[in-house]
């Protein structure tokens, strides 16, 4: 029998993509299925209620404290991340392009991306937290700010390496043309490089933000895990991912369903943010 390579390749590729679609839709379906009891019991109030009470007889679950915690930590992370990641990628891709220093820093940034979440958590627990106490932000060192800070360090490599790639892709012809017109380096960076790489740089921050939303382990170790809306950025709180990680083990019934519902909300939130990112990129 003659073996049709083209056809086999096509079939294999199609099967592989199909598996992805099946897995993704299966996850959404099972999340939706699992969260039905919670939404049936609390309706849309589940999203706006601030009470998380697992005591038997008084069971009531609301996701707002965790939604607020997730957004606060991620926003803090991205605010800290943007200037650092932006400068680093400018340094690597433009100012010291092709030099040994740039390649060393590039490798270090990639290494940061490879460190497991739990290691960041441990470092935060033993090193970062005492600093926060010494600086007098709060008395135990846990809280939204500490978690946001560790998240910032964790997402910097993602934002940096994508931004760097994008900046490297800006055509040399354009830059040389600008130089030949008498532009200074600063002018080239702000008038040629950044406008051309804008959408890519923006995407890198959106991706970093998306990662910050779902990061679990390090946040769980540093946020203080108080299931209430934080009163300020130095107060303790909790995020959607870390409440799931914390309470899934012993949960059953309505509580389990509520945790799955939070998972679904997180999924939807991440999806919306990625969608928003794509939309803005098209506009830019």
């Amino acid at each position: 029998m003659k073996w049709n390579v083209e056809k086999t390749t096509k079939t294999l590729l199609f099967a592989a993509s199909l598996v992805i679609i099946i897995i993704a839709s299966g996850m959404v379906l099972s999340l939706m299925n699992g969260s039905i009891p919670a939404f049936k019991e609390f309706g849309l109030k589940f999203i706006i209620s601030t009470e998380w009470n697992p005591t038997e007889g008084n069971e009531h679950y609301g996701a707002l404290p965790f939604i607020v915690g997730t957004i606060l930590t991620s926003v803090i992370a991205i605010i800290i991340c943007i200037p650092l990641a932006f400068s680093t990628s400018l340094f690597i891709s433009e100012l010291y392009r092709g030099t040994k220093v740039a390649s060393i820093i590039g490798t270090m940034v990639d290494m940061l991306a490879g460190i497991p979440s739990i290691v960041y958590g441990l470092w935060g627990f033993y090193v970062l937290r005492p600093w926060i106490i010494d600086l007098g932000f709060n008395s135990q060192g846990y809280g939204i700010f500490t978690a946001g800070l560790i998240l910032a360090i964790m997402v910097i490599p993602y934002a940096t390496s994508i931004s760097t790639e994008i900046m490297l892709m800006v055509s040399n012809d354009l830059k040389e043309a600008a130089y030949s017109l008498g532009a200074t380096r600063r002018e080239v960076i702000f008038n040629v490089l950044i406008p051309n790489a804008r959408s890519g740089i923006f995407t890198s921050f959106i991706l970093a933000f998306g990662r910050a939303l779902g990061e679990t382990m390090a946040v769980t170790m540093l946020i203080g895990n108080a299931n209430i809306i934080p009163k300020g950025i130095f107060d303790t709180g909790n995020t959607m991912a870390s409440i799931i990680a914390n309470q899934f083990g012993e949960a059953d019934g309505l509580k389990l369903s509520s945790l799955i519902a939070i998972g679904l909300l997180l999924f939807v939130m991440t999806g919306l943010i990625n969608g928003l990112g794509k939309f803005i990129i098209k506009k830019l």
Binding site: W52, T55, N227, I228, N238
Partner: peptide, 14 residues
């Protein structure tokens, strides 16, 4: 009473 309760004060650790 419960395996997790609705704490009004303090912070949680895993």
């Amino acid at each position: 009473r419960g395996k997790s309760i609705n704490w009004t004060v303090g912070m949680g650790a895993k």
